[in-house]
Design a protein around this nucleic acid. Structure first.
Ligand SMILES: [Mn+2]
Ligand SMILES: [Mn+2]
Ligand SMILES: [Zn+2]
Ligand SMILES: [Zn+2]
Lengths: 136, 136
DNA sequence: AATGATAATGGAAATCGTTTCCATTAACAC
DNA sequence: GTGTTAATGGAAACGATTTCCATTATCATT
Protein backbone atom coordinates (compact mmCIF):
# COMPACT_ATOMS: atom_id res chain seq x y z
CA UNK A 1 0.00 0.00 0.00
CA UNK A 2 1.83 3.05 -1.32
CA UNK A 3 1.12 6.71 -0.75
CA UNK A 4 -0.61 7.08 -4.09
CA UNK A 5 -2.90 4.14 -3.42
CA UNK A 6 -3.65 5.40 0.05
CA UNK A 7 -4.57 8.77 -1.41
CA UNK A 8 -6.97 7.27 -3.93
CA UNK A 9 -8.76 5.23 -1.32
CA UNK A 10 -8.91 8.22 1.02
CA UNK A 11 -10.51 10.44 -1.58
CA UNK A 12 -13.15 7.84 -2.35
CA UNK A 13 -13.80 7.18 1.31
CA UNK A 14 -14.16 10.88 2.15
CA UNK A 15 -16.44 11.74 -0.72
CA UNK A 16 -20.11 10.92 -0.71
CA UNK A 17 -20.32 11.42 -4.46
CA UNK A 18 -19.62 9.11 -7.35
CA UNK A 19 -16.21 10.03 -8.68
CA UNK A 20 -14.58 9.47 -12.03
CA UNK A 21 -10.90 8.63 -12.37
CA UNK A 22 -10.25 12.20 -13.38
CA UNK A 23 -12.29 13.58 -10.46
CA UNK A 24 -10.05 11.60 -8.18
CA UNK A 25 -6.94 12.77 -9.98
CA UNK A 26 -7.99 16.40 -9.57
CA UNK A 27 -8.62 15.97 -5.87
CA UNK A 28 -5.30 14.29 -5.29
CA UNK A 29 -3.11 16.37 -7.55
CA UNK A 30 -2.78 19.50 -5.37
CA UNK A 31 -1.45 17.37 -2.52
CA UNK A 32 0.46 14.74 -4.46
CA UNK A 33 1.43 16.28 -7.80
CA UNK A 34 3.67 13.31 -8.49
CA UNK A 35 0.78 10.87 -8.74
CA UNK A 36 -0.23 10.42 -12.36
CA UNK A 37 -3.57 9.55 -13.91
CA UNK A 38 -2.25 6.19 -15.03
CA UNK A 39 -1.64 5.22 -11.44
CA UNK A 40 -5.13 6.31 -10.49
CA UNK A 41 -6.54 3.91 -13.06
CA UNK A 42 -4.22 1.16 -11.91
CA UNK A 43 -5.12 1.67 -8.30
CA UNK A 44 -8.83 1.77 -9.05
CA UNK A 45 -8.58 -1.57 -10.83
CA UNK A 46 -6.91 -3.06 -7.80
CA UNK A 47 -9.39 -1.60 -5.33
CA UNK A 48 -12.27 -2.89 -7.43
CA UNK A 49 -10.74 -6.33 -7.78
CA UNK A 50 -10.24 -6.73 -4.03
CA UNK A 51 -13.80 -5.57 -3.46
CA UNK A 52 -13.13 -2.31 -1.63
CA UNK A 53 -14.55 -0.13 -4.37
CA UNK A 54 -17.40 -0.49 -6.83
CA UNK A 55 -17.15 0.65 -10.43
CA UNK A 56 -20.34 2.07 -11.88
CA UNK A 57 -21.48 3.10 -15.30
CA UNK A 58 -24.32 5.55 -15.54
CA UNK A 59 -24.03 5.99 -19.27
CA UNK A 60 -22.19 9.29 -19.13
CA UNK A 61 -19.18 7.98 -21.01
CA UNK A 62 -16.90 7.64 -18.04
CA UNK A 63 -16.83 5.16 -15.19
CA UNK A 64 -17.62 6.32 -11.68
CA UNK A 65 -16.42 4.82 -8.45
CA UNK A 66 -17.87 4.54 -4.98
CA UNK A 67 -16.87 2.82 -1.78
CA UNK A 68 -18.14 -0.77 -1.68
CA UNK A 69 -21.21 -1.26 0.44
CA UNK A 70 -19.44 -2.97 3.31
CA UNK A 71 -17.51 0.19 3.97
CA UNK A 72 -19.67 3.03 2.81
CA UNK A 73 -21.97 3.35 5.79
CA UNK A 74 -25.11 3.43 3.73
CA UNK A 75 -25.19 -0.25 2.88
CA UNK A 76 -26.48 -1.65 -0.33
CA UNK A 77 -28.29 0.87 -2.43
CA UNK A 78 -29.52 1.50 -5.94
CA UNK A 79 -29.50 4.62 -8.07
CA UNK A 80 -31.75 7.21 -9.62
CA UNK A 81 -30.08 8.79 -12.65
CA UNK A 82 -31.25 12.13 -14.06
CA UNK A 83 -31.06 12.31 -17.83
CA UNK A 84 -31.21 16.08 -17.67
CA UNK A 85 -28.31 17.09 -15.49
CA UNK A 86 -26.70 13.73 -14.77
CA UNK A 87 -27.39 13.93 -11.06
CA UNK A 88 -27.30 10.62 -9.28
CA UNK A 89 -29.33 9.87 -6.19
CA UNK A 90 -28.55 6.96 -3.91
CA UNK A 91 -31.61 5.35 -2.42
CA UNK A 92 -32.34 2.39 -0.26
CA UNK A 93 -36.03 2.82 0.22
CA UNK A 94 -37.72 -0.50 -0.48
CA UNK A 95 -34.33 -2.02 -0.54
CA UNK A 96 -35.47 -4.83 1.75
CA UNK A 97 -38.42 -5.75 -0.37
CA UNK A 98 -36.38 -5.33 -3.51
CA UNK A 99 -33.60 -7.49 -2.21
CA UNK A 100 -36.02 -10.20 -1.11
CA UNK A 101 -37.50 -10.39 -4.58
CA UNK A 102 -34.10 -10.12 -6.21
CA UNK A 103 -32.83 -12.99 -4.12
CA UNK A 104 -35.77 -15.13 -5.11
CA UNK A 105 -35.41 -14.14 -8.75
CA UNK A 106 -31.70 -14.80 -8.72
CA UNK A 107 -32.22 -18.26 -7.30
CA UNK A 108 -34.73 -19.25 -9.89
CA UNK A 109 -32.79 -17.76 -12.76
CA UNK A 110 -29.65 -19.47 -11.56
CA UNK A 111 -31.44 -22.79 -11.56
CA UNK A 112 -33.21 -22.32 -14.86
CA UNK A 113 -30.27 -20.99 -16.85
CA UNK A 114 -27.55 -22.73 -14.91
CA UNK A 115 -25.99 -19.35 -14.31
CA UNK A 116 -24.05 -18.26 -11.23
CA UNK A 117 -25.26 -14.78 -10.34
CA UNK A 118 -23.04 -12.75 -8.09
CA UNK A 119 -24.10 -9.18 -8.70
CA UNK A 120 -26.91 -7.05 -9.97
CA UNK A 121 -27.36 -3.60 -11.36
CA UNK A 122 -30.54 -1.62 -10.80
CA UNK A 123 -30.96 1.93 -11.95
CA UNK A 124 -33.97 4.13 -12.53
CA UNK A 125 -33.70 6.76 -15.23
CA UNK A 126 -35.72 9.94 -15.52
CA UNK A 127 -35.69 13.61 -14.69
CA UNK A 128 -34.94 15.11 -11.33
CA UNK A 129 -36.70 17.84 -9.45
CA UNK A 130 -34.76 20.56 -11.21
CA UNK A 131 -34.79 19.13 -14.71
CA UNK A 132 -38.33 17.93 -15.10
CA UNK A 133 -40.08 21.29 -15.07
CA UNK A 134 -38.95 22.70 -18.45
CA UNK A 135 -40.03 20.80 -21.51
CA UNK A 136 -39.95 17.19 -22.53
CA UNK B 1 -37.20 6.55 -44.64
CA UNK B 2 -34.29 5.81 -46.97
CA UNK B 3 -32.86 2.49 -48.06
CA UNK B 4 -30.02 2.67 -45.55
CA UNK B 5 -32.40 3.32 -42.66
CA UNK B 6 -34.70 0.57 -43.80
CA UNK B 7 -31.75 -1.83 -43.88
CA UNK B 8 -30.68 -0.98 -40.34
CA UNK B 9 -34.14 -1.50 -38.94
CA UNK B 10 -34.50 -4.73 -40.88
CA UNK B 11 -31.30 -6.18 -39.52
CA UNK B 12 -32.30 -5.37 -35.96
CA UNK B 13 -35.78 -6.74 -36.48
CA UNK B 14 -34.54 -9.98 -37.99
CA UNK B 15 -31.88 -10.67 -35.38
CA UNK B 16 -32.68 -12.06 -31.97
CA UNK B 17 -29.30 -11.02 -30.66
CA UNK B 18 -28.05 -7.75 -29.24
CA UNK B 19 -26.13 -6.05 -32.01
CA UNK B 20 -23.46 -3.38 -31.93
CA UNK B 21 -23.27 -0.65 -34.55
CA UNK B 22 -20.42 -2.52 -36.17
CA UNK B 23 -22.33 -5.82 -36.11
CA UNK B 24 -25.09 -4.10 -37.99
CA UNK B 25 -22.64 -2.54 -40.41
CA UNK B 26 -21.13 -5.95 -41.19
CA UNK B 27 -24.52 -7.50 -41.81
CA UNK B 28 -25.60 -4.71 -44.11
CA UNK B 29 -22.37 -4.13 -45.98
CA UNK B 30 -22.47 -7.16 -48.33
CA UNK B 31 -25.88 -6.05 -49.59
CA UNK B 32 -25.48 -2.30 -49.42
CA UNK B 33 -21.76 -1.52 -49.67
CA UNK B 34 -22.58 2.13 -50.09
CA UNK B 35 -23.97 2.49 -46.57
CA UNK B 36 -21.27 3.76 -44.24
CA UNK B 37 -20.78 3.24 -40.53
CA UNK B 38 -21.51 6.88 -39.85
CA UNK B 39 -24.99 6.45 -41.26
CA UNK B 40 -25.53 3.39 -39.12
CA UNK B 41 -24.80 5.45 -36.03
CA UNK B 42 -26.99 8.26 -37.27
CA UNK B 43 -29.85 5.91 -38.02
CA UNK B 44 -29.54 4.17 -34.68
CA UNK B 45 -29.79 7.50 -32.89
CA UNK B 46 -32.97 8.25 -34.76
CA UNK B 47 -34.50 4.83 -34.18
CA UNK B 48 -33.71 5.09 -30.49
CA UNK B 49 -35.12 8.59 -30.23
CA UNK B 50 -38.42 7.61 -31.83
CA UNK B 51 -38.63 4.61 -29.54
CA UNK B 52 -38.35 1.82 -32.09
CA UNK B 53 -35.02 0.58 -30.80
CA UNK B 54 -33.43 0.31 -27.38
CA UNK B 55 -29.79 1.08 -26.75
CA UNK B 56 -28.13 -1.07 -24.12
CA UNK B 57 -24.81 -1.04 -22.35
CA UNK B 58 -23.57 -4.28 -20.87
CA UNK B 59 -20.19 -2.91 -19.96
CA UNK B 60 -18.35 -4.41 -22.90
CA UNK B 61 -17.19 -1.08 -24.22
CA UNK B 62 -19.66 -0.80 -27.04
CA UNK B 63 -23.36 -0.11 -27.14
CA UNK B 64 -25.75 -2.82 -28.21
CA UNK B 65 -29.14 -2.40 -29.78
CA UNK B 66 -32.33 -4.42 -29.71
CA UNK B 67 -35.83 -3.91 -31.00
CA UNK B 68 -37.97 -2.00 -28.53
CA UNK B 69 -40.28 -4.17 -26.51
CA UNK B 70 -43.44 -3.11 -28.31
CA UNK B 71 -42.12 -4.68 -31.48
CA UNK B 72 -39.82 -7.45 -30.39
CA UNK B 73 -42.38 -10.14 -29.69
CA UNK B 74 -40.93 -11.07 -26.35
CA UNK B 75 -42.19 -8.06 -24.46
CA UNK B 76 -40.40 -6.41 -21.62
CA UNK B 77 -37.43 -8.39 -20.38
CA UNK B 78 -34.29 -8.08 -18.34
CA UNK B 79 -30.81 -9.47 -18.88
CA UNK B 80 -28.34 -11.93 -17.49
CA UNK B 81 -24.79 -10.95 -18.43
CA UNK B 82 -21.92 -13.45 -18.32
CA UNK B 83 -18.67 -11.92 -17.20
CA UNK B 84 -16.75 -14.82 -18.70
CA UNK B 85 -17.77 -14.90 -22.33
CA UNK B 86 -20.01 -11.87 -22.54
CA UNK B 87 -23.08 -13.92 -23.37
CA UNK B 88 -26.36 -12.18 -22.73
CA UNK B 89 -29.53 -14.01 -21.85
CA UNK B 90 -32.93 -12.37 -22.14
CA UNK B 91 -35.34 -13.47 -19.47
CA UNK B 92 -38.81 -12.59 -18.43
CA UNK B 93 -39.35 -15.10 -15.70
CA UNK B 94 -40.67 -13.31 -12.66
CA UNK B 95 -41.15 -10.34 -14.83
CA UNK B 96 -44.69 -9.84 -13.55
CA UNK B 97 -43.69 -9.89 -9.93
CA UNK B 98 -40.65 -7.77 -10.67
CA UNK B 99 -42.65 -5.23 -12.58
CA UNK B 100 -45.24 -4.99 -9.85
CA UNK B 101 -42.60 -4.22 -7.26
CA UNK B 102 -40.78 -1.92 -9.64
CA UNK B 103 -43.94 0.03 -10.27
CA UNK B 104 -44.56 0.42 -6.57
CA UNK B 105 -40.94 1.37 -5.98
CA UNK B 106 -40.97 3.85 -8.82
CA UNK B 107 -44.06 5.53 -7.49
CA UNK B 108 -42.68 5.97 -4.02
CA UNK B 109 -39.28 7.09 -5.22
CA UNK B 110 -40.92 9.56 -7.57
CA UNK B 111 -42.89 11.02 -4.73
CA UNK B 112 -40.07 11.08 -2.23
CA UNK B 113 -37.37 12.52 -4.49
CA UNK B 114 -39.69 14.46 -6.77
CA UNK B 115 -38.20 12.58 -9.68
CA UNK B 116 -39.98 11.57 -12.88
CA UNK B 117 -38.96 8.01 -13.64
CA UNK B 118 -39.52 6.79 -17.15
CA UNK B 119 -37.18 3.86 -17.50
CA UNK B 120 -35.25 1.29 -15.57
CA UNK B 121 -32.27 -0.93 -16.10
CA UNK B 122 -31.99 -4.33 -14.46
CA UNK B 123 -29.17 -6.69 -15.14
CA UNK B 124 -27.79 -9.69 -13.31
CA UNK B 125 -24.09 -10.37 -13.64
CA UNK B 126 -22.31 -13.65 -13.17
CA UNK B 127 -21.00 -16.68 -15.00
CA UNK B 128 -22.93 -18.75 -17.46
CA UNK B 129 -23.19 -22.47 -17.81
CA UNK B 130 -20.07 -22.70 -19.92
CA UNK B 131 -17.92 -20.23 -18.04
CA UNK B 132 -18.56 -21.12 -14.45
CA UNK B 133 -16.95 -24.57 -14.40
CA UNK B 134 -13.27 -23.62 -14.80
CA UNK B 135 -11.81 -21.51 -12.03
CA UNK B 136 -12.94 -18.54 -10.03
C1' DA C 1 27.48 0.45 1.26
C1' DA C 2 27.10 -2.28 -3.02
C1' DT C 3 24.36 -5.65 -5.52
C1' DG C 4 20.57 -7.58 -7.60
C1' DA C 5 15.68 -8.95 -8.01
C1' DT C 6 11.10 -7.31 -8.05
C1' DA C 7 7.22 -4.24 -7.79
C1' DA C 8 5.44 0.30 -8.67
C1' DT C 9 5.46 4.49 -11.18
C1' DG C 10 4.38 8.34 -14.57
C1' DG C 11 4.34 10.16 -19.10
C1' DA C 12 3.88 9.37 -23.97
C1' DA C 13 1.76 6.94 -27.27
C1' DA C 14 -1.63 3.79 -28.80
C1' DT C 15 -6.34 2.06 -28.84
C1' DC C 16 -10.96 2.07 -30.19
C1' DG C 17 -15.89 3.17 -30.10
C1' DT C 18 -18.22 7.13 -31.26
C1' DT C 19 -18.83 12.06 -33.04
C1' DT C 20 -17.90 15.92 -35.75
C1' DC C 21 -16.74 18.13 -40.15
C1' DC C 22 -17.45 18.94 -44.65
C1' DA C 23 -17.85 18.48 -49.40
C1' DT C 24 -20.99 15.74 -52.35
C1' DT C 25 -25.38 13.89 -53.62
C1' DA C 26 -30.39 12.90 -53.48
C1' DA C 27 -35.10 14.65 -53.14
C1' DC C 28 -38.38 17.78 -54.07
C1' DA C 29 -40.97 22.21 -54.96
C1' DC C 30 -41.40 25.95 -58.20
C1' DG D 1 -33.64 23.88 -64.94
C1' DT D 2 -33.01 26.39 -60.51
C1' DG D 3 -32.82 26.64 -55.91
C1' DT D 4 -33.59 24.82 -51.21
C1' DT D 5 -33.17 21.35 -48.01
C1' DA D 6 -32.23 16.81 -46.05
C1' DA D 7 -29.27 12.84 -46.17
C1' DT D 8 -24.92 10.74 -47.00
C1' DG D 9 -20.10 8.69 -46.50
C1' DG D 10 -15.29 9.19 -45.55
C1' DA D 11 -11.69 11.49 -43.10
C1' DA D 12 -10.46 13.47 -39.18
C1' DA D 13 -11.20 14.56 -34.43
C1' DC D 14 -12.50 13.18 -29.89
C1' DG D 15 -11.96 11.27 -25.24
C1' DA D 16 -11.78 7.75 -21.82
C1' DT D 17 -8.96 4.10 -20.95
C1' DT D 18 -4.83 0.92 -21.88
C1' DT D 19 -0.45 -0.25 -23.23
C1' DC D 20 4.50 0.53 -23.47
C1' DC D 21 8.63 1.40 -21.58
C1' DA D 22 12.32 3.52 -19.33
C1' DT D 23 12.96 5.14 -14.56
C1' DT D 24 12.57 4.69 -9.65
C1' DA D 25 11.36 2.84 -5.12
C1' DT D 26 11.59 -1.27 -2.08
C1' DC D 27 13.93 -4.62 0.22
C1' DA D 28 16.60 -8.78 1.06
C1' DT D 29 21.38 -10.58 0.48
C1' DT D 30 26.15 -9.97 0.56
MN1 LIG E 1 -24.11 5.13 -4.97
MN1 LIG F 1 -32.61 -8.20 -24.71
ZN1 LIG G 1 -31.48 16.73 -13.21
ZN1 LIG H 1 -20.17 -17.28 -20.32
Amino acid sequence: MTVGREAVLDVIAQSDEHLSAEDIYMKIHPFYPAVGLTSIYRTLDILVSIGLVRKLDFGHGRAKYELAEDSNGKGHHHHLVCRGCGRIIDYNDFIDEELALLKKTEESLSRKYNFRIDNHLIQFYGFCDTCKKPER
